[in-house]
Design a protein around this nucleic acid. Structure first.
Length: 270
DNA sequence: ATCTCGAGTCTCGGGGAAAG
DNA sequence: CTTTCCCCGAGACTCGAGAT
């Protein structure tokens, strides 16, 4: 499991955030009183092939390493003299960088990393419903070996959480009769009358790797249920007829988003 | 009585430095 | 160059408390 430096740093920042704003219960801004669920809000963006459990253990550990350096209800790691345990260079730099921030500044920074709309209980229920309807691989892991390619682009996934949350609102408005939800593995799903209608996969980059994996995820998650619409959600880009034709012949729709300040607008292209 | 959650500790493997 | 050593991080494990 090799993570890129940016991803490592963002995960360290999340750990710091959880340690600092999470007292006896998780940071209130995440909208849950349970740690498991709080941590899972970061899973859609940062899971990167790990299982939920692996991700949970790892992120919780990251949080715990900061505990002895911050004031909260947990003890944290201490050395034999009871002093705060040493931090890795990365964690130390995150600590000094974020320590000066106010709580709200800190949340502003972390906000785009999280899919706050993800409700883990609902997600589990919906997942088993979808599997019951024949979408057999709705929640599958597909992870044979545990190697995750490091990303070269610095801002590959930073905004993923924000985009997914905004898309949630958008799809909800477009389909007021429908029921919109996230799952751990699928960025967004729409159902209507108890039937799964559409899947949405959000990518924050338009490089070929993102396109391949996005289409692959849509195909595999929808397998066994041909009536489900599939949408790839990409940042705004130049008109690309080749890509559009290709997606059209695969039966994959395309939605582009544009960011204005902290708002996102979505345009259905295909 | 059982399940769930959280705190804290332990282990293993990778990577790089140091020694041969 | 090759082998050994050591550090560190990812993640699993244990235990206890509280909820159901």
């Amino acid at each position: 499991m090799h993570l890129s430096d940016t991803v490592k740093k963002e995960l360290a920042e999340i750990g710091y955030f959880l340690s600092r704003l999470g007292q006896s219960s998780p940071p209130p801004c995440l909208g849950t009183a349970v740690w498991k669920e709080a941590i899972s809000k970061f899973y859609p963006s940062y899971g990167l092939g790990r299982t939920e459990k692996e991700f949970y253990n790892s992120l919780k550990n990251t949080r715990d390493r900061f505990d002895s350096h911050l004031k909260n209800s947990r003890e944290g790691w201490k050395d034999e003299n009871g002093n705060p345990g040493p931090l890795s260079a990365l964690n130390q730099s995150v600590l000094s960088e974020l320590d000066g921030m106010s709580d709200s500044q800190l949340w502003e920074r972390i906000r785009p990393y999280a899919v706050t709309k993800l409700d883990i209980k609902l997600a589990r229920r919906k997942t088993s419903d979808a599997v019951g309807q024949g979408t057999k691989h709705f929640s599958s892991e597909f992870s044979g070996s545990k190697s995750v390619k490091a990303r070269k682009s610095g801002q590959a996934i930073v905004r993923h959480g924000s985009v997914v949350d905004a898309l949630y609102e958008f799809v909800g408005l477009m389909h007021p009769e429908g029921d919109v939800y996230n799952t751990q593995k699928i960025d967004l799903a729409l159902e209507s009358g108890g039937c799964l209608k559409a899947l949405y996969e959000v990518k924050t980059s338009t490089d070929t790797q993102s396109l391949y994996t996005g289409v692959g995820q849509l195909m595999m998650h929808a397998a066994g249920n041909p009536d489900v619409c599939k949408y790839l959600v990409l940042p705004e880009m130049d008109k690309n007829p080749d890509l559009e034709n290709c997606l059209a012949s695969l039966g994959v729709g395309l939605i582009c988003y544009q960011q204005l300040e902290d708002k996102y607008t979505f345009v259905t292209v295909l």
